[in-house]
Design a protein around this nucleic acid. Structure first.
Lengths: 235, 235
DNA sequence: TAGTGGTCTAGACCACGCC
DNA sequence: GCGTGGTCTAGACCACTAG
């Protein structure tokens, strides 16, 4: 079975967005434009654009066009309230451990597939601040197979997800979370600058991607006293 | 502007689902059936069914039909892992406070609109168990205006959301969450049968509905030691 | 007024599930 | 084989946005 025509158009546009050819805030070609370029009818063009909408890449505006979105905002992920999405906020990140080849860690709270375990693992960890206050430590693991050169790469605008999208065309397609309230151990207490035993929010995340058997495993530890974790979901 | 034809069909089917006329697990009329019944073309019938799919009421199965879903599973809400969705699990709920007229509580972590504040408030609270272990206390507030007779009602299968849907055709259309790790105060410690000061997960929720200015505000306190909170999101 | 997306019709052919 | 949903064409009219 050959590829659906709407998928051809959808993937063509998606690639151009990932490459930055269509920048965030700019408009895609109109439906009629796509009809001409690809020799398709509006139904098919609209289906392609509907799929990109569903995936969170664009928003359709009646009378104007299809505008390219900052995708992270549409993904329904848990976020430190007023953290990365806040404009003008004094947020920053430091690496505790730059990306390096490493081992799958038993700290990971999800089941790692055999296919992943057989591959080598890449690890990095970060400490994230609002102003001068540390609010979250973050530990990440993933199979290195698809990330040639990743350890020598700078993150695009400090964003791991943007880097995956731009350089590797890897997109997040879903995530599973587990949430726990815990007491901070000595290590976390020092990093987050709180007393040992303070309550912290432990979030285990498994990010699924468009690549089979390539998932990203993250363990997050948050001081929610002043910056709670937020999440929004709308039909 | 008159109502779109696909919306007519969509709302017709939605009402029948809410009323239980089409039960969970059963099939809606086929596309061609809807075309005949409503004198529309397949494009329009498919649009109606696509909307119901997006809203989480049905799932479309190639070669079979449109099957009615248990909607809560598709809503992307935070759940106690292995709690309400687990089959055969020994889960139960007791009311700490049956639904009663009450006052808007300052404990609510979200901003309540003036329109809501002007209305009377209905409150209830529950304690939820897995086996004999209490894992979550739950406090709920909402404007009573649309809930005539609610305080005298039994919940359908113990579910607040099912009751809202069946009796009042009120559906959840979204939710905002705020998550905090806290220490249990004496009251929560007793209810959850844990030492005072134990870390607990405090979840503040604002549920949005299909009715303007009718939101449900919930404050949840969870012992996540053995039953973490889970959440799944997939494109 | 021109261009955009939103709705809708009336067909056609294909792929999947089931008897 | 037959009914189901999935894809696609070729048109039409309408509603929104902007110059």
């Amino acid at each position: 079975m050959e590829e659906r025509r709407y998928r051809t158009v959808q993937n063509f546009l998606k690639l151009r967005i990932q490459q930055g050819y269509y920048e965030v805030g700019s408009y895609l070609p109109s439906e009629n434009g796509l009809c001409s370029s690809f020799s398709i009818t509006r139904t098919t063009a609209r289906k392609a654009l509907a799929e990109l909408t569903r995936e969170g890449f664009i928003e359709r505006k009646h009378g104007k066009g299809s505008i390219v979105l900052e995708r992270r905002k549409t993904l329904g992920l848990l976020n430190v309230k007023g953290f990365s999405e806040a404009v003008g906020k004094d947020v920053s990140t430091v690496f505790l451990q730059n990306p390096v080849p490493g081992n799958w860690d038993p700290k990971i709270n999800f089941t790692i597939s055999d296919a992943e375990l057989k591959k080598s693992c890449v690890h990095f960890s970060r400490l994230r601040f609002v102003g001068s206050e540390p609010v979250m430590t973050e530990y990440n693991w993933m199979a290195g197979e698809y990330l040639k050169g990743f350890c020598d790469l700078d993150f695009i605008e400090g964003s791991f997800f943007k880097t995956l999208s731009r350089h590797y065309h890897i997109e997040i397609t879903g995530s599973d979370h587990e949430l726990r309230a815990e007491n901070a151990d000595e290590n976390k207490a020092i990093l987050l600058d709180i007393p040992i035993g303070s309550p912290i929010l432990h979030i285990s995340v498994k990010f699924l991607t468009n690549i089979n058997n390539f998932n990203i495993y993250s363990e997050l530890y948050c001081n929610t006293k002043y910056y709670p974790i937020g999440n929004s979901y709308h039909i």
